[in-house]
């Protein structure tokens, strides 16, 4: 690993910005099998618990005048529901639980990943790619089931001059298949970059002279990361809605 080439023994700065992303078994050492309990399992379980705490325990009062927890739960509910309705249309509300699941998982995984010593599950391309491919498959299958071959008109830009249409079709096709890639890498890359940058700044605090500056920088980056955590969850969800709209109403 390139950063480790510095080594701790030659007295220089020691950066391991990527070590926080290593998947390792919770108990003991050894290879990571498919069913091994790993830190991924732990933090995903915590994500589930946090979601249950907020959306199930928080609303258990069923109060007409909501408690604080219930207000937050209702806020999230309204937020996502309105997004689905506004962007993808009323007939996309069937997919509301699905989109809500993605949104809440990403949001809580991002926020939990910001805790010190935490493992950020959404910083892994394996995780985000699965979600992006799920969205991609859903949208593609739904598009063909709802519209039949007419779904292909998504790639045939009827408003462009006839000569340009084949070229545009190729571009549209490519951009369609790049969607899951950009969709997943955006989220994972943002998370990874933010955490790595924080780690790098934290590494600078080993030098006493610039330690205050590095702590300041870590604090600033942390604030930015809180924002980015939410925005990336929002962007992932809204792009899902946009893709869903394409599947439901391909004629743009």
């Amino acid at each position: 690993m390139a950063t480790e080439a510095h080594g701790a023994d030659d007295g220089g700065l020691v950066f391991h910005p990527m070590d926080q992303f290593i998947v390792k078994p919770l108990f003991g050492e050894g290879a990571v099998g498919v069913f091994t309990l790993t830190n991924v399992t732990l933090w995903m379980a915590l994500t589930v618990l946090a979601i249950i705490a907020l959306l199930v325990m928080g609303t258990s009062g069923r109060a007409t005048i909501p408690t604080r927890m219930q207000s937050v739960a209702e806020l999230l509910y309204e937020f996502v529901r309105k997004m689905v309705e506004d962007v993808a249309g009323k007939d996309a509300l069937v997919f509301f639980p699905y989109i809500m699941t993605l949104f809440l998982f990403i949001l809580f995984a991002n926020f939990l990943g910001l805790l010190p010593m935490a493992f950020t599950t959404t910083s892994h391309i394996a995780v985000t790619a699965v979600m992006a491919v799920m969205v991609f498959l859903t949208v593609t299958i739904l598009g063909f089931v709802k519209n039949g071959p007419a779904f292909l008109s998504l790639f045939w830009v009827s408003s462009a001059p006839l000569a340009l249409r084949p070229i545009l079709a190729v571009i549209e096709l490519i951009s369609y298949f790049v969607r899951p890639v950009s969709h997943s890498i955006r989220l994972a890359g943002n998370m990874m970059a933010g955490h790595a940058v924080i780690k790098v700044f934290a590494g600078f605090s080993q030098v006493a002279m610039i330690a205050p500056l590095s702590i300041l920088a870590v604090s600033a980056m942390y604030g930015l990361e809180v924002l980015v955590s939410f925005i990336q969850a929002y962007v992932f969800t809204i792009l899902t809605c946009v893709y869903l709209k394409d599947a439901l109403h391909p004629h743009h």
Binding site: A2, M83, S182, I185, R186, G189, N190, M192, V235
Partner: peptide
């Protein structure tokens, strides 16, 4: 919403270059 989508698209390409940097490094 459109603003965020636009920002997301613009940012995605930046993230690609960041990814390429990471790939080269590691």
């Amino acid at each position: 919403a459109t603003l965020f989508i636009g920002i997301a698209f613009a940012e995605a390409l930046g993230i690609f270059s960041f990814l390429i940097a990471l790939l080269l490094m590691f």
